[in-house]
Write a protein that binds this DNA or RNA. Structure first.
Lengths: 217, 217
DNA sequence: AAAGATCTACGACTATCGTCTTATGCGACT
DNA sequence: AGTCGCATAAGACGATAGTCGTAGATCTTT
């Protein structure tokens, strides 16, 4: 009996994925989540064998969210589902600890195969990029490592920083004092080896694979 | 008699490009530049018919540099040369005013054709993306427009801001007082419709197509 | 149980940011 | 000659950022 968590903000695609997989695993237990918060709380309460994660999910922030989940649940196999086919991006995803990458264009056969391989603990990527997996840049993985070592609170603060919010606004959103936000900010700087918020924002935005449209405030 | 400026930080590739083109245009006048500063000064002193611009050139900062040049020399035809084949990125490049996009994998025949088309004032993109050119997001082009309207000094200040420098450090690098830097910063904010440096950095980093490795300071 | 490490939280203090005002010099356009 | 935009820069001021010390809570280690 296998329990699977499909995390994707598109309900139709969740259904399609579920359908494709239930053909091969009749006794499949499928959980669903539409954003990163739901995903995390489900992972905390349920016993999940594999997470299928859409990188572009609300609250996920691409690699940023993947790192977060990898840190919170180190043993959990994660397969990333996304629309891109770019070998460089897929390399980064795998380099950051995902056990596989399933393009949204994959056939149900491919998907089933991918899930099987990943449940076995191996890595699966689309055939088109099998030979093109690049070595991930050393400083990039160091960066990813540093970001992964942020505590949940620090992670949230960094997310808000990357949206251009002031410490005061971040505190309001998180229900904590500005002084506490500042403490988190300082801790983030130390972990990332930097000394001001601009550099932090840059690092965070580099973990975005497809930057969203800039919010004009 | 056609004068061409090849701006690429790779001397070998400049030679290759020059070679490919001189086959078709025996009386070609080729200038070369290795970084953005050289490019700008050559454009100021020489009469150039077409600029072949490598986006990943030192000082160029991808779209950022292209916008800068488009603003300084609005009438100059620019063809972008780059390694990517991503239709989304190419769409942005064209949307920002480049008359063409030449992938580094292009054959010398393709290159010659591209240059010919562009000198005629038309747009040339690789066949593989001809049908896939996307409409550029409205807020993106608005953003690009705003950035393009920065003055040269403001542009430089924004570049340093994006590197995480303090106003004081920027002033030192540019040989001007911190007070002047602040004046520029405020002006930048007004032009971009924002109100703090974090948002400015975010905008700048969105104009990077392939973010460089983070500089650990 | 005691010690140590980590996370979260917050106030006090200093540094930097960002705005505003004012001013000078310069070149371009009318 | 006058106006405009741009670059430069000073002084003053409030807002924000960032550091430091402290403290309670939790968890692990000894």
């Amino acid at each position: 009996m296998i329990t699977l968590l499909i995390a994707d903000d598109h309900p139709l695609y969740r259904d399609a994925l579920k359908g494709a997989l239930s053909l091969n695993w009749p006794d499949l237990n499928v959980l669903e989540a539409g954003d990163l918060n739901q995903t995390v709380s489900l992972l905390q309460s349920e016993d999940v064998d594999l997470l299928l994660l859409d990188l572009h999910m609300p609250g996920s922030n691409d690699l940023f969210g993947l790192l977060h989940i990898r840190k919170l649940f180190p043993g959990l196999p994660v397969a990333v589902v996304s629309g891109t086919e770019d070998a460089t991006i897929i390399s980064k995803i795998v380099g950051v600890g995902a056990l596989g990458f399933i393009p949204k264009t994959a056939s149900s056969g491919d998907i089933a195969e991918a899930v099987e391989v990943i449940l076995d603990g191996d890595i699966w990527v689309p055939e088109s990029v099998t030979g093109h997996l690049e070595e991930v840049d050393e400083s990039f993985s160091e960066l990813a490592d540093n970001v992964a070592n942020l505590t949940p609170s620090q992670y949230k603060v960094l997310c808000y920083m990357r949206d251009g919010l002031l410490n005061k606004q971040i505190g309001y959103n998180l229900g904590i004092a500005e002084a506490t936000v500042k403490a988190h900010v300082t801790a983030i700087f130390k972990k990332l080896g930097i000394n001001n918020r601009t550099q932090a924002v840059l690092i965070a935005s580099q973990l975005e694979l497809e930057p969203p449209v800039q919010k004009q405030t």
